[in-house]
Simulated assay, not measured.
Amino acid sequence: MTFKMLCLDIDGTLLNSNHEVSLETKHAIQTLPKDFPVILVSARMPKGIMFLHKELQLKTPIICYSGALVIDVARNGSYQPILNISMTLPQMKNIYQQAKMKHIHIGFYRDDDWYVEDMDDWATQEKDIAKTNPTVIDYEGLFRILGDSHNGANKVLCMGKEEEIESLESSLKNACDGELTIYRSKPTYLEIMHHTVTKTSAIRFLQRKFNLKQHQIIAVGDNFNDIDMLQYAGLGVAMANAPEQVKQIANEITLSNDNNGVAKVIQKYLL
């Protein structure tokens, strides 16, 4: 079977535990033909991905916010959106109210902007991981701004203690009645997008752009928000550091993110 597109999750997959791309993984990616679509697929905002995209010398589209925003490299070298899906302002307000009642940190992401109400420990932690800086703003003011633009957030990120996040996830799923995509990207992180948004929906969008078949796609990931794309791809590969539930649905398990698992997949199937 000939594979013609590689979709890579970032955290826990492409990046090792030091949040870096190893030399072996970088070399494997850069050994692929220049026109081979290596697609970075992440819940991160564009700023949190573009520096890695440039480091790897890629010229292909990027899937941000788990599929809510897809950007591509224009002729002038700038990044331009080619797919942009946002939630409504009432949905944002409802999430905010429920998270606030549970004393959970909440951040809003729209286009390439990240908004927080204050720089608490959660915001500082995310800033250090994603190497991006949020805008600190009163959320009532933010809601007024977004209300005028008629364009809500691409993603909401809630961070808190594991039991608090579980409680919020349950209450939101009961309240939203399928109007939102809600999942935990780690035990303490809850990610929320428009109900049509998944990593797979964005991959399908790019699949049409590159005129590829489903069986020609390899997807590699390590967490629950990667399950849908691992199941969709012709070859779904879970990292050795993935939870057991993710490994169980994968076609194959590669080495961990600290042992160049992505490089091993490329070497086995693409080189």
Rank of each mutant, 00 (worst) to 15 (best):
H215E: 12
Q231P: 06
A28Q: 11
K102V: 10
E179K: 12
L235C: 12
H53W: 04
D226W: 12
V136D: 03
K209S: 11
I29H: 10
K155D: 04
Q80T: 08
A263R: 10
S171T: 12
S66R: 01
I203F: 06
R144I: 02
Q30V: 09
K93E: 08
K93W: 02
A123P: 10
F36D: 02
A263D: 10
G77D: 06
I145R: 00
N84E: 15
I95K: 00
V156L: 13
F224A: 13
R184L: 05
A250P: 13
D148R: 01
H194K: 05
L146S: 03
P61M: 01
I137N: 01
M101H: 13
I62N: 11
D121P: 04
V246F: 05
K47D: 12
V156R: 05
Y139W: 07
T25M: 11
D228F: 07
E162M: 13
T88G: 02
K54R: 14
I129C: 14
G178D: 05
Q207W: 11
A99Q: 09
P46S: 06
N174R: 09
I71R: 05
E252D: 02
I165L: 09
F143L: 00
L58K: 01
G67Y: 12
A238R: 04
K161F: 13
Q98G: 08
A153R: 00
T13H: 14
H19R: 09
H19T: 13
L69W: 03
T200Y: 00
V265C: 08
K173C: 08
N151C: 03
Y232E: 09
A123D: 01
G77N: 10
Y269I: 01
L6V: 05
R44L: 09
R44I: 08
E55Q: 14
M119E: 03
S66H: 06
V262H: 06
I182N: 02
F143D: 00
T198M: 07
H19P: 04
H53C: 04
Y65R: 03
T25R: 05
Q207Y: 12
T188W: 12
E20Y: 10
F210Y: 15
G152R: 00
T2S: 14
S185D: 11
Y139E: 00
T181L: 03
S167C: 02
L142C: 00
I253P: 07
I71W: 04
Y115D: 13
L190E: 00
R110E: 04
K155N: 11
Q57D: 15
T2H: 13
K264G: 07
S167Y: 09
E117S: 14
K34W: 03
L172D: 05
G261P: 02
A28Y: 04
V220Y: 07
I266W: 02
V220W: 03
R184Q: 15
N223M: 04
L157R: 01
K131L: 14
P90S: 05
E163W: 06
K59L: 03
D222I: 03
S167P: 00
F3H: 14
R204N: 11
G234D: 08
R208H: 15
L230Q: 11
Q245N: 07
Y189S: 10
A202C: 12
A43I: 00
L40Y: 11
D228S: 14
V73H: 05
D9T: 15
L40V: 09
L230H: 09
P243W: 01
N259S: 13
M119T: 06
Q57N: 15
Q91P: 04
T200L: 02
R110A: 10
G107S: 15
G160K: 07
E164P: 07
H103T: 11
G48D: 07
K268I: 02
